[in-house]
Amino acid sequence: MIPSALLLTLALGAPTLDVRVSAQPGTTFSALAPSTVTVNVGGRDHVRPLRGVPDPSTPDAYTRLLPARLTLPAGTRGPATVRLRLFLCDKARGLCTVQEQTRRVLLTPGRALVVAFNAAPQGWQP
Rank of each mutant, 00 (worst) to 15 (best):
P3H: 03
S4L: 15
S4C: 00
L7Q: 12
L7F: 03
L8T: 10
T9S: 09
A11E: 12
G13F: 07
P15N: 07
T16Q: 14
L17T: 08
D18C: 03
V19T: 01
A23T: 10
Q24V: 15
Q24R: 15
Q24K: 15
T28I: 12
T28P: 12
T28N: 13
F29A: 06
S30P: 10
S30Q: 07
A31H: 10
L32Y: 05
L32R: 12
L32W: 05
V37R: 05
V37T: 06
T38P: 01
T38H: 01
N40I: 00
N40R: 10
G42W: 00
P49C: 01
P49Q: 10
P49L: 10
R51F: 02
G52D: 09
P54N: 09
D55K: 04
P56I: 00
P56F: 04
T58Y: 09
T58Q: 07
P59K: 03
A61Q: 09
Y62I: 06
Y62Q: 02
R64A: 13
L65R: 01
P67H: 03
P67K: 01
A68G: 01
R69A: 10
T71P: 05
L72E: 02
L72K: 01
P73E: 03
T76V: 04
R77D: 09
R77N: 10
R77S: 13
G78S: 00
T81V: 11
V82C: 03
R83N: 07
R85P: 03
L86E: 06
L86D: 02
F87H: 15
F87I: 07
L88I: 09
C89K: 10
C89R: 12
D90S: 11
A92P: 13
L95I: 12
V98A: 14
V98P: 11
Q99H: 06
Q101D: 15
V105D: 05
A112K: 10
L113V: 04
L113K: 05
V114A: 14
V114M: 07
F117H: 04
F117L: 04
A119Y: 14
Q122H: 14
Q125H: 15
